[in-house]
């Protein structure tokens, strides 16, 4: 009898463990779907979208410029010494440009924006949840997903590709600084290689990645903040800190996973 009931408990626990992530995934799916749909419902939330573009996009310009420049510079250095071994340092322009536009631009931009804006989204929405501000929106018949999430999704979809483009351009200039100015590659050769090797397909691929990363990052960060109160490990401010941490970690990991998947599709 005891063995039987013990077995039942075990099966029940296993079932719960299996069902919980599936349920969460479903919740994330509907949350994201309504967030996306509500971007297009009237009246359009132009002002809020612009506000978020300013927060996610404009205010990230400095950090993206900085990281873009140093990434390009380090690529220039590493690339030069690797290519010299084969006597093909003239290809540095292609190496820097392609690795930036195809991979590093979208990924590093996403990671930097997660750190700067994604964590802020999760924390802000999380605090709104624990201080009943989201409940207050519901009592006023204001759809909290439309009010809080939709403008962020729209703003991220606008900002991510632009920030990625900025990252790419600054990175290519960074590569030029180290490769050409410091290590002496002919600047004409460097830029000619950039021009000849980069195809429209690479640029489009990079932008597709940026848009997908934008959706992934905003969905995860907003979702984590929005459901802070359901966290089993902590309530209140601890709950907010946990959801912010997990929002950052999960979205970073997901960005890399999605990057692999997209690369394999796009190549």
């Amino acid at each position: 009898m005891t063995i039987l009931s013990g077995g039942k408990t075990l099966v029940a626990a296993l079932g719960r463990q299996t069902l919980a992530p599936i349920r969460n995934l479903g919740k994330l799916g509907t949350f994201f779907f309504w967030g996306l749909v509500n971007i297009f419902t009237l009246p359009f939330q132009f002002y809020k979208v612009i506000e978020q573009v300013c927060f996610i996009g404009a205010k990230s310009v400095f950090v993206i410029t900085l990281t873009g420049a140093f990434t390009g510079m380090v690529l220039g250095l590493q690339g030069y010494y690797a290519l010299t071994k084969f006597g093909s340092e003239g290809m540095l322009g292609s190496a820097v440009a392609l690795s930036l536009i195809r991979e590093m631009g979208p990924v590093l931009t996403a990671v930097m924006v997660i750190g700067r804006a994604g964590s802020a989204m999760a924390a802000e929405i999380g605090i709104m949840r624990i201080s009943e501000q989201i409940d207050a929106l519901e009592t006023m018949s204001i759809d909290p997903v439309r009010f809080l999430v939709s403008p962020r999704i729209a703003a991220a979809v606008i900002s991510f590709p632009l920030l990625t483009a900025l990252f790419d351009v600054i990175g290519i200039i960074g590569g030029y600084l180290t490769g050409s100015m410091l290590l002496g590659i002919n600047s004409g050769v460097y830029f000619a290689r950039v021009e000849s090797s980069v195809l429209m397909k690479d640029v489009t691929g990079g932008f597709i990645k940026a848009v997908v990363f934008a959706l992934v990052v905003v969905a995860i960060c907003c979702f984590k903040g929005f459901y802070t109160h359901l966290s089993k490990e902590g309530f209140g401010s601890k709950g907010v800190s946990l959801s912010t941490t997990s929002a950052v970690v999960i979205s970073c990991v997901l960005v890399l996973v999605t990057d692999y998947v997209l690369t394999s599709i796009l190549l």
């Binding site: 501000q133 207050a136 009592t139």
Partner: peptide
């Protein structure tokens, strides 16, 4: 309309 115990003002 609902008035919350903790006010729930948008900070």
């Amino acid at each position: 309309s609902y008035m919350f115990q903790g006010n729930a003002l948008f900070d």
